[in-house]
Design a protein around this nucleic acid. Structure first.
Length: 649
RNA sequence: GCCGACGUAGCUCAGUGGUAGAGCAACUGAUUCGUAAUCAGUAGGUCGUCAGUUCAAUCCUGACCGUCGGCACCA
């Protein structure tokens, strides 16, 4: 006698166990048509599931977020059926729903290409049109294995073999096609609708392990209706326009070329942006008590052997040999050993701790060719690195201080939101389990103190310690780790760093590795995409374009440009023999934030006509006032903030 | 590194087994025109690199390099 409680609080009682389909029909024909699945006591299940006992039931219709995920999952099944109909002999593996869509991994001798898409999509539409019901059935473990092996589906058989013995093994049938699946699904293939599209093909390792065979993955996107699909596709197009590689080229910020794979050639405008960010960071860390140092680029392998990098990361290091000397040097892949070498000079006292040694350190890492991506992932980059040597007692306070600094920096660059991940001990690591226990718990406590909310990223810590990862998102939704804070009890031990404690004993300091931008290259890539090249005035590589209307104004325009430059602004003087329309267009396309137009009238009145990027309005301003105002507006946000001292005065 | 696609002028792209074109940009000249493209002319490419097939290769084949989309990797 199940009593079913609906979201509005009403209760319906049935004489015997009932399916969701029956319940929906009992409530009304509208719901019967709209219900795709249901949540029974919060658990999403097939509409045809039978409710045995009292339960709270929520019906899922097309409007619900859960429906979207089911559309995508069902769509993956239809994709698999279509592929197997069209390409007999192809084995199916797994096909989940993902953000914005779904994929399915197939095992086939010949990988798919985008040229196959038209036929596959047509077949998918045909299958959706058949509107075959999704039918769930439970199968015995051994039968299931035998069933899939008989069909030549060895991947599916392997999946069942690896399921825990307690797991109920379910199959879903749609028409003649059957897949191993946990479910749930909607009522029938027709519920998917037609707002789907195959997007790309890719290789992917079976079970995500590079030692396994490579499968052919087909990605698709699926939505509730055509309007949503169109909006998504349009969003992707827009996002492509923000791509830092596109903007970097169009604005002349940087380039990459074959002879220096993975290294950036920064052009004047790009380098201006780079330096603006670097200068900003120098001020911020100086304000937080960091001392800047610089350590050698080329270091003997002996040091890397001591630090443990040689053993674990040699294949990622660029080596340098000199014929005259029997030595192997390595370009530093990171700055930490250098920082420890500085710490080790002389005898350190507990009174010096925490000692915050910062370095804008150029690092080189031989990244796998397939990992390279524009300026986001390169082989030569600059870290805004720092190493904080402190006592265990100081970890929490330093973490809090760091998170505050990082949050403030990200906010200044237009990233008020960011994600934090806590990465704990990796499979290959240095240090004892006891050390790791201590390090992980210290960092977690520090997070509590700092009020940092994180998600767990298991097994992704550095080899010497756990880390916090601060993640920013690019234009197309890809996540990139930028900032990080890493707790390290290992390197001080390996490289023998110590200080004299209050009681005269020698102690090991704890080392905190931390970056905020992470890599300048990556951060700038994200920054470019964040603003789509339309930087706020303080960041813009060219801040003002002074453009003349007639050549009679050339002299005055030159004067204007000089005045602005004296005020510290980056100015492009455009005396070219073009119409003002063309000049406005050109500088607008270059995303120059302010165009100062100068004609006869301005020259006579000693004014400028200011036009802001993206606006059409012009503002006639006396030259002196324009210079003062723009200089003030172009002040970096950290310098524009009143300091405590000024506030007190 | 693995799977797939791609590589033609500075940029965006077209094209063909008989050694290449367009638009924009560049350069020259004319134009001095008040807020998103003034007109005309000129110049510019061993078609990613190296082999092979062919009477003949930018086009076909192979290797390599690079780029792109994923996967794996990311100290």
């Amino acid at each position: 006698m199940p009593a079913i409680t609906l979201p509005d609080g009403s209760v319906r009682t049935f004489d015997a166990p009932v399916s969701g389909t029956t319940v929906a029909a009992a409530i009304g024909p509208g719901l019967a048509r709209a219900a795709l699945a249901m949540k029974v006591d919060g658990k999403l299940v097939d509409l045809s599931s039978v409710i045995e006992a009292d339960a709270r039931v929520v019906f899922v219709t097309r409007k619900d977020e859960d429906a979207l995920e089911m559309i995508r999952h069902d769509c993956a099944h239809v994709l698999a059926e279509a592929v197997q109909e069209l390409f007999p002999g192809t084995q199916v593996t797994i096909g989940p729903s993902i953000e914005n869509g779904f994929y399915y991994d197939f095992a086939r001798n010949e990988p798919f290409t985008t040229e196959d898409f038209a036929a596959i999509e047509a077949k998918m539409r045909e299958i959706v049109g058949r509107n075959a019901a999704f039918e769930r059935s439970v199968i015995d473990r051994d039968e299931g294995i035998a069933f899939f092996e008989a069909k030549g589906e060895k991947y599916k058989a392997e999946l069942i073999r690896d399921l825990p013995g307690t797991e109920v093994i379910t199959l879903y049938r749609q028409g003649e096609w059957i897949d191993l699946c946990r479910g749930p699904h909607m009522r029938s293939t027709g519920d998917i609708g037609t707002a789907f599209k195959l997007m790309k093909v890719a290789g992917a390792y079976w079970r995500g392990d590079h030692r396994n065979p490579m499968l052919s993955r087909i990605y698709g996107t699926a939505w509730r209706d055509q309007k949503e699909l169109d909006a998504y596709l349009h969003m992707l197009e827009e996002a492509e326009k923000r791509d830092h590689r596109r903007i970097g080229k169009d604005m002349g910020l940087f380039h990459l070329q074959e002879e220096a794979t993975g290294s950036v050639f920064w052009h004047p405008k790009g380098w201006k942006l780079y330096r603006t960010c670097e200068d900003y960071m120098r001020r911020r860390i100086a304000g937080d008590g960091y001392l800047e140092v610089k350590t050698p680029q080329l270091v003997d392998r002996v040091l890397w052997e001591k630090s443990g990098h040689w053993e674990k990361y040699r294949e990622h290091m660029f080596l340098a040999r000199v014929d005259e000397e029997d030595k192997t040097l390595a370009l530093k892949p990171m700055n930490c050993p250098g920082a420890v070498m500085i710490f080790r000079q002389g005898i350190r006292s507990y009174r010096e701790l925490p000692l915050r040694l910062a370095e804008f350190g150029a690092c080189h890492r031989y990244e796998p060719s397939g990992a390279l991506h524009g300026i986001m992932r390169v082989r030569s980059f600059l870290q805004d690195d720092a190493h904080i040597f402190c006592t265990e007692d100081q970890i929490a306070a330093e973490t809090v201080k760091f998170v505050e600094l990082l949050s403030s920096v990200y906010a200044d660059f237009g990233f008020p939101e960011f994600r934090v991940k806590f990465a704990d001990r990796p499979p290959t690591r240095a240090g004892t389990d006891a050390t790791w226990d201590k390090a992980e718990s210290s960092l977690k406590e520090a997070c509590v103190t700092a009020g940092v909310k994180y998600e767990l990223n298991p097994g992704e810590g550095a080899f010497y310690g756990p880390k916090l990862e601060f993640v920013l998102r690019d234009a197309i939704g890809r996540d990139w780790q930028c900032g990080t804070l890493q707790l390290d009890f290992v390197l001080p031990e390996r490289l023998d760093a110590e200080y004299v404690a209050e009681d005269g004993s020698r102690r090991r300091p704890v080392m905190l590795h931390r970056v905020i931008f992470g890599s300048m290259e990556r951060f700038l890539g994200i920054l470019i995409e964040q603003y789509a090249g339309r930087f706020p005035l303080w960041l813009a590589p060219v801040q003002v374009a002074v453009a003349t209307i007639v050549s009679d104004a050339d002299g005055y325009a030159t004067e204007v440009a000089e005045a602005l430059r004296r005020a510290g602004l980056s100015v492009k003087l455009d005396l070219s023999n073009q119409k003002i329309n063309a000049k406005v267009r050109e500088h607008s396309l270059q995303h120059v934030p302010v165009i100062a137009v100068v004609g006869r009238k301005e020259a006579e009145q000693r004014t400028v006509a200011l036009r802001r990027l993206g606006g059409e309005a012009q503002e006639l301003v006396p030259l002196d006032e324009a210079v003062a105002r723009l200089a003030r507006e172009a002040t970096a946000p950290d310098l524009a903030r009143p300091t405590l001292v000024q506030g007190a005065a």
